[in-house]
Design a protein around this nucleic acid. Structure first.
Lengths: 229, 229
DNA sequence: GCTTGTTAGATTGTCGACAATCTGCTTGTC
DNA sequence: GACAAGCAGATTGTCGACAATCTAACAAGC
């Protein structure tokens, strides 16, 4: 008999589904930064009571994409240029560390996944599906973290990724022209396949993914924007 | 009239107080790893309904010190030797980065705080107050993060700190002899006051705080311990 | 005119009760 | 005795209603 390994069973609580729905809405930019989340309205739209909704919001607050002020409300976090710079600079440091840890762990499965995810990015790019393009690019990026075999590092990166994804989504939403982005990951993938770890780390530290400068300019543009109702 | 700057008002929700209570109980080891948190019992003890308690637990789950299994319960996280190694190694990388960022920001207030927190550690050590000793040592350590002026980094470190504090508390609880720990931070403080940033970074990467090896041995000892009720 | 007190409405925080799910025991069958 | 089915108790998940708090609009006083 073939050896089956079953994945974990799906979370069957409303709370978990609400979390997924809200997170997606925020990360794709459907809920804008600063926007207030009205519990009653949302719970009615989702046909759910406020209890699981509130618990879900509590999770997202801790995840760092919502912020809560007692008796005032829960809001999508505001995005400042400094936030983006901070997240991005930390991301580079973590990348360097992740590469160091993952390097000796690379195996055939790693290279397969690398190609698979790279292909997914290229496909999303061809299809001009910007949301998916961001998702797949971050998943490609995340491979080294999954192979680094350090649960705390992986968790940290996933938190960071939430924000980066949100930032990029906002940015691409702002300029509604199709994204240029020919394949910017070619070098990255090649270096991860190679034998020079230092070179890969240097690339991670120096390479600017996905128009970082433009993203920053956009963020500076929406500084101090009033929060909406 | 003197210029006053008021801090933010205290959170006045039950939820916030519950979070603080639970966190403290976990980080000081009063609630042991693997232990289940019975909602009804705790809510009765605290004279609070289950709603705010559950929201508080949701926060701590996201904070990484509780874990939740739907319809089964919420438990204090289990501590494995690997968790400790992972957290510790990431901590070193973050330290190095924090020192780099904080270095040019050092000012008289920084050095004052440095001495103040160092003194607090020494005092806790003299008083043989192990819990406080851990707290103060981590606060001393946290100074560079507060001065690094990178909110994402600070937040990341605080998450990590929760766990480290829990690990050390467990360790010290296990061996109930008074901690040896004469002043192990003298060099660290001196380097942060000096002019050689590289040396400070190297020290952060290489120096082993608070008997790390012994902590690990302890963690290996309680691997696979059954969870309690 | 500007500030301060009051009030109504809306929204968040909390509560107690009910529904869904799990666990362990008992019972019946072979 | 071993095993599966089913039941009872306990616990978590969800609900609807009430209490506490905030906001904004308006009135009163200087």
């Amino acid at each position: 008999m073939a050896k089956l390994d079953f994945g974990p069973i799906a979370d069957t609580t409303r709370r978990a589904e609400i979390v997924a729905l809200l997170r997606r809405a925020i990360l794709t930019g459907q809920l804008e930064p600063g926007q207030k989340l009205n519990e009653l309205r949302i719970s009615e739209q989702m046909r759910v009571s406020r209890a699981p909704l509130r618990e879900a919001m509590r999770e997202l607050v801790q995840e760092g994409i919502l912020t809560s002020i007692p008796y005032a409300g829960t809001f999508v976090i505001d995005v400042t240029a400094k936030d983006i710079i901070d997240a991005y600079s930390l991301n580079k440091v973590l990348d360097e560390f992740a590469i160091e840890l993952a390097w000796p762990q690379r195996d055939p499965r790693f290279f397969d996944e690398l190609d698979r995810r790279h292909e997914a990015v290229k496909q999303a790019t061809r299809a001009v599906d910007t949301t998916r393009q961001i998702e797949t690019a971050l998943q490609l990026h995340g491979l080294i973290y999954e192979w680094a075999d350090n649960s705390v590092l992986l968790e940290t990166w996933q938190r960071l990724t939430s924000r980066l994804q949100m930032y990029f989504a906002l940015h691409q939403r702002a300029r509604n022209e199709p994204v240029p982005a020919e394949d910017v990951h070619e070098t990255y993938v090649a270096l991860l396949k190679g034998t020079d770890m230092r070179a890969a780390q240097r690339h991670a530290r120096e390479h600017i993914d996905l128009d970082f400068e433009e993203l920053l300019a956009y963020a500076r543009g929406l500084e101090k924007r009033p929060s909406k109702n």
